[in-house]
């Protein structure tokens, strides 16, 4: 820890198939800004040594990249991750540890926190430094998003927070930035294996349950035919969203009934609902109008869906939807 208390910031990153996941990269970008504000060092921590894009982490802002001795990438070894992170943090005493929410925050991060005798502020949507108190102010939703709370760590360190996967925009990489690559070897045998991974079942369908999804992309009769649903499915994929539909596409056999939103389908209330080529009949609205943000794409400016839309886009969905997909995909990298 530096003398003014503004010690290191760590970001625990997640990799898949040896590549860092986009939300981790975005978080590095955010952490870079925070580090810049208080002139602290930014360290990216990878839970494996097989990270093809480690240089990228430096380009996005990490001063140092820790590559912890990991077994096979993607393998699951929470016990080992906890032990390694704890050992390292005890040695280096970072001031802040950040990670994205998801599997890590349901196990590794809170366990690490307890071992370090500190807490966690989970699932944050924004992070700011309070220059007066020199504390990290973490903003997180509660009560189903109907309330926001600012959380601080008055006297324990490190301050640990996990953030929603898409809370931050990906920064701009600076390829000239060089980071220090540090391999840390751990004695895995020393971790008493109390949990063991026996098998991995990858869910290839990538299906998100409609009634639980945080984001729903819905296609209506405006899509014209079954094949065109591919277009909205792609948008859904980029957003990690569930696919919804109105009744006519179900009646015409384009989409299975399980996807129908409305009076006689599922009632959904996601954070974001994107309606493409949906008129907005009352029976449809009954199933989605409590969504937090509703985006409507329709060529008819008088379509009733615009009456409930937060953002309305009058135009041809066959132009708008692919553009949107492209734009979001670029943002994700």
């Amino acid at each position: 820890m530096t003398s003014d208390g503004s010690g290191d910031i760590w970001v625990v990153t997640e990799q898949r198939d040896g590549r860092t996941k986009a939300p981790s990269i975005a978080l590095i970008g955010k952490a870079r800004k925070l580090a810049g504000e208080r002139q602290s060092r930014l360290t990216a921590v990878c839970l494996s040594q097989v990270v093809e894009d480690a240089a990228q982490l430096a380009a996005y802002g990490a001063d140092r990249v820790y590559l912890l001795d990991g077994p096979v990438p993607d393998d699951w070894n929470d016990d080992a991750y906890v032990k390694e992170l704890v050992d390292l943090a005890r040695r280096e005493k970072p001031d802040v540890i950040l990670a994205t929410s998801g599997s890590l925050s349901s196990s590794v991060i809170p366990r690490m926190a307890v071992a370090l005798d500190t807490g966690v502020s989970p699932n944050c949507i924004s992070l700011d430094f309070d220059h007066q108190s020199r504390m990290l102010v973490q903003t997180r939703p509660a009560f189903g998003g109907s309330l926001m709370a600012n959380v601080v760590f008055p006297n324990r360190r490190p301050q640990i927070a996990t953030v929603r996967p898409h809370a931050f925009k990906k920064g701009d990489p600076d390829p000239s930035r060089q980071g220090e690559m540090i391999r840390v070897d751990f004695d895995r045998q020393a971790v008493s294996a109390k949990t063991k991974l026996l098998n991995v079942v990858k869910d290839l369908s990538g299906k998100v349950r409609l009634d639980e999804a945080e984001v729903v992309v819905c296609g209506g009769r405006g899509l014209g035919k079954a094949e065109n649903f591919q277009m909205v499915a792609e948008l859904a994929e980029v957003l990690g969203a569930a696919l919804g539909t109105s009744r006519p596409p179900v009646d015409d056999g384009w989409v299975p009934y399980a996807h129908q939103v409305g009076q006689t389908g599922k009632i959904v209330s996601p954070r974001l609902y994107i309606a493409c080529g949906v008129a907005g009949a009352p029976q449809h609205l009954a199933g989605m109008q409590t969504s937090e943000i509703i985006v409507a794409i329709n060529e008819d400016p008088r379509a009733p869906i615009f009456e409930v839309a937060t953002y309305g886009m009058v135009g041809d969905l066959f132009k708008i939807v692919p553009l949107l997909t492209k734009k979001l995909r670029e943002a994700r990298g």
């Binding site: 926190a113 005798d117 500190t118 807490g119 966690v120 502020s121 102010v137 939703p141 998003g145 109907s146 309330l147 926001m148 709370a149 600012n150 959380v151 601080v152 760590f153 008055p154 006297n155 324990r156 937090e292 943000i293 615009f306 009456e307 839309a309 937060t310 953002y311 309305g312």
Partner: peptide, 17 residues
């Protein structure tokens, strides 16, 4: 270790733009 320093209502997205 953690303390809630402030509680507030989220800014709603502006309606109907």
């Amino acid at each position: 270790p953690t303390r809630v320093s402030r509680v507030f209502f989220p800014q709603r997205a502006s309606q109907g733009e």
